[in-house]
Design a protein around this nucleic acid. Structure first.
Lengths: 137, 137
DNA sequence: TCAAATCCTTTCAATTATCAAGTCAAACAG
DNA sequence: CTGTTTGACTTGATAATTGAAAGGATTTGA
């Protein structure tokens, strides 16, 4: 379904999605038009879901990065999910998981005080285990 | 440091980083030139770290998405870290964390067989807890 | 062998980005 | 109050890219 050139294109776009099609073409030994055609097809197939940026959260004032494992004893997860929906500012992703917990939250907070507020709210609906990210390596 | 227009620009680029500067300008009520100037400054400040794509991993044949909490009893983490470096194909991120484990691996695998191979290798250097992602919501 | 399909290239008009002035308003010192 | 500086924006001309159309290889299947 995808050949080597497509994989190269994905790699290049993953590194710099604002590259011009002409330049992308040069990197994979195609004309700009051929490269653009392939990219359009990758979009249509749904392989490329979108174009986005990497933001430095620390420079935006978010100094605390954490993973929170959620354990819910009740059979009704809705109160927790509703709470999460009110906190989308802090939540990067919510993964429903097998294993130790029911969910894994990937979050960021400007400070430990804000994190503490969040945990106080969270604790009304679920138990949790907190893992602060020290370093992404 | 960053005003409301800058935040809007970040939001727009986060949703679509291949937007033209002219169109971006229209969205935030600036000329294309002014928008491009602001984007350049956001890059120089390091707020924008790069431009990338969202890839549908399932369409690339990666059906298993997992978080693996790593517990190392030994004081020497190097064997584990070296092993990880040989497995970068499967590892999206390696987070050094506080809490239950020493590290949290975000990984993907084409199949449970490949995951099993990975775990066999991993187990020579560390203990682990596996959480399979059922759904990203 | 022929027709259709796929993938690529070339060409050119339309659009966008870039560069260099130039405008405007706020901040500030004399 | 006045003149200067600075930062952020606009304008306009030029260079570069994009997008669309036409056409050339190559492959596939009837």
């Amino acid at each position: 379904m995808l050949d080597n050139t497509d994989m190269q294109i994905l790699e290049e776009l993953n590194e710099n999605s604002r590259i011009t099609m002409k330049e992308l073409g040069e990197k994979v030994h195609l004309t700009g038009q051929a490269a653009a055609d392939r990219v359009t097809k990758l979009e249509e197939k749904g392989v490329i879901e979108g174009y986005t940026i990497k933001i430095n959260q620390v420079k935006l004032g978010c100094y605390v990065y954490a993973f929170i494992t959620i354990i819910i004893r009740s059979t009704n997860h809705q109160p927790f999910l509703s709470f999460i929906n009110t906190q989308e500012k802090h939540i990067i992703s919510n993964y429903k998981i097998s294993g130790d917990g029911c969910y894994l939250l990937e979050c960021r907070f400007p400070s430990n005080e804000v994190l503490d507020d969040f945990l106080l709210g969270l604790n009304k609906h679920a138990n949790y285990k907190l893992s602060i990210v020290i370093k992404k390596q």
